[in-house]
Amino acid sequence: MDVPALPPLLAAVLAAPQLGLTLALGAAVGVIMALTGAGGGILAVPLLVFGLHLPLQQAAPTGLIAVGTAAALAAVLGLREGIVRYRAAGFMSAFGMATAPAGVWLAARLPAVPMLLGFSGLLLWVAWRSLRAAPPGDAAPPEHLPCRLDPAQGRLRWTGRCARALGATGLTSGLLSGLFGVGGGFVIIPALQHVSNLDLRSIQATSLAVIALVSASGVVAASASGALPWAVAIPFGAGAVVALLAARVLARRLHPGHLRRAFGLLTLVVALMMIARAFGWRIG
């Protein structure tokens, strides 16, 4: 009896020479996303560049697969817990999905070295924000925030200022998502902390919902342009999803401040490695 042939894509995945490493790198992204709600996306691309030696133009959409899939799963779990602000997430996503294809278009046309240096600069900014201690009184009084939670209804009060702040956040995260393959959580989370009085768990869950939707837009655009190596993207994404589920329990037991500083130090090291890569240094 003849054994049915495997579908070509599945056969390519199983035959990949670095399948185990790809799964492990994806798992690292999932763990970071579970612990920080944002950081997995910005570290997915460096892992692919250094671990699998993908060019940045292919690493970016591959990272989006893992980030978007894991974020979608986490967002569904957040919806079940009632901590996702789905109206705000949908509003930001609409703007982000409009600009993500533009970022993909730019990424396919920019030279490799400027892209690497631009991504390194982004990493340095994220590291600085993560390591920087917020000064006392840094947060605005709740009555001055553009997006305030109505304690009676448990919903955000929508104003013109709130809509403009959320729209600008969505536009920025979408463009960076398409350009560098990052989820955009490093933009969304600080923005929501700055303009709203939502608690951190709600901010992280809402950010993940936006990441899932915006990443889908970037993945579609990258796939249409032929820049997405599916044989790598599928196991990378699978590793991220499994690890995210496993690490959610650990995330509840660790102090957010310690996580933020550890993530900042890791991001700083990766930024310096990306700068070295831009000037010709190679690993392996």
Rank of each mutant, 00 (worst) to 15 (best):
P4D: 13
P7R: 10
P8T: 09
L9C: 04
L10D: 09
L10M: 09
A11H: 10
A12S: 13
P17N: 10
P17S: 09
L19D: 07
A24E: 00
L25W: 03
G26M: 08
V29Y: 06
V29C: 07
V31S: 02
M33Q: 11
M33S: 12
L35H: 05
G41R: 13
V49E: 02
G51Y: 09
P55E: 08
P61K: 11
G63C: 03
I65A: 13
A66R: 02
A71R: 00
A74E: 01
A74C: 00
L79T: 02
R85N: 12
R87K: 12
F91M: 13
T99S: 08
G103T: 12
V104L: 06
L110P: 00
P111F: 07
P114L: 08
P114G: 12
G118L: 14
G118A: 13
S120W: 06
S120L: 04
G121N: 06
L122C: 09
L131I: 01
A133W: 02
A134K: 11
A139S: 05
P142L: 05
L145S: 03
C147G: 05
G154D: 12
G154T: 06
R157C: 10
R161P: 03
R161E: 12
R161Y: 07
A163F: 09
G167R: 14
S173Q: 15
G174E: 10
G174N: 11
L176M: 11
S177E: 01
S177F: 08
G178D: 00
L179R: 14
G183H: 08
G183T: 08
G185N: 07
I189Q: 14
P190A: 09
P190V: 08
A191H: 03
Q193R: 15
Q193A: 14
V195Y: 15
R201I: 03
A205E: 00
T206A: 06
T206I: 03
A209F: 10
V210A: 07
I211F: 08
S217T: 01
G218Q: 10
V219G: 02
A221T: 02
A222K: 14
S223W: 13
A224P: 00
W230S: 02
A233E: 11
A243T: 05
L244D: 05
L244K: 08
L245I: 04
A247R: 09
V249S: 14
R253S: 12
L254N: 04
L254R: 03
H255G: 00
L259C: 03
R260H: 14
R260P: 10
R260V: 12
R261T: 05
A262Q: 06
F263P: 01
L266A: 14
T267R: 06
L268M: 12
V269T: 13
A276F: 05
A278D: 11
R282P: 07
